[in-house]
């Protein structure tokens, strides 16, 4: 069997585009869109989210045979919340100013439906390594959306990428202007809507 056909690899690759958690399962758009004004914060958020999803899947899957059925929600929530505290503390220690910009949104990973949803639907019924890959894939699929939205918003909204100006001065001299609208909340919704359209057209065709 080829590597790309193995269930472990599929668990990782399917959620990237084909079964993207945001576009297809419409999960997890909560909160995190607010950090897409800048590319930098979006990348950090995507990394935090991916590691939390992957490790929560790993932990819950490793414990899946000992978790009593009727208290599983509480167990899942405490595993996720502990991982989020860990992520938040690491960000504070090493990337203090980014963690200030992310403000409450790192904490809101706890209530992000993707983490909970994957733990509930995948990790409780699959072996640890495969669950880990599934978490990695779902986190990355989500991160991909986040980074794409942030790329569009920062490029058109501020004329910068990762804080460096990329639109040449020559354009501004000839009347090009940054689109202030891109920096505001409604733009994020509209960009997501258009990206869903794009994704559906590609996958179908």
């Amino acid at each position: 069997m080829k590597m790309t056909q193995s269930p472990t690899f599929k668990a990782f690759s399917e959620p990237l585009v084909k079964n993207n958690p945001v576009f297809i399962q419409s999960l997890g758009i909560c909160s995190a869109l607010a950090v897409t004004v800048q590319l930098k914060t979006a990348i950090v958020m995507a990394l935090a989210m991916t590691s939390v999803t992957a490790f929560s899947n790993l932990t819950i899957s490793a414990m899946r045979n000992v978790i009593p059925r009727n208290v599983r929600m509480i167990v899942e929530l405490s595993v996720i919340a502990s991982l989020v505290i860990l992520a938040d503390e690491i960000l504070r220690a090493y990337f203090y100013d980014i963690s200030k910009q992310l403000s409450v949104f790192v904490g809101l990973i706890i209530t992000n439906c993707i983490v909970m949803g994957r733990a509930e639907t995948y990790a409780l019924g699959n072996p640890p390594i495969r669950s880990f890959m599934d978490g990695l894939g779902n986190g990355a699929g989500y991160g991909l959306v986040l980074v794409t939205v942030a790329f569009i918003r920062e490029l058109f909204g501020a004329g910068k990428l990762l804080g460096f100006p990329v639109v040449p001065q020559f354009f501004y001299d000839h009347g090009y202007m940054n689109m202030g609208f891109m920096q505001l909340a409604p733009a994020a919704f509209i960009i997501i809507g258009l990206l869903v359209w794009l994704q559906k057209s590609i996958v179908k065709g």
């Binding site: 409604p186 994020a188 509209i190 809507g193 258009l194 869903v196 559906k200």
Partner: peptide, 17 residues
Amino acid sequence: GLEGFGITMIMTGLMAM
């Protein structure tokens, strides 16, 4: 391709405006 989730997002954007 836009029906369902896509158009909902765009409507939300207009409402946010």
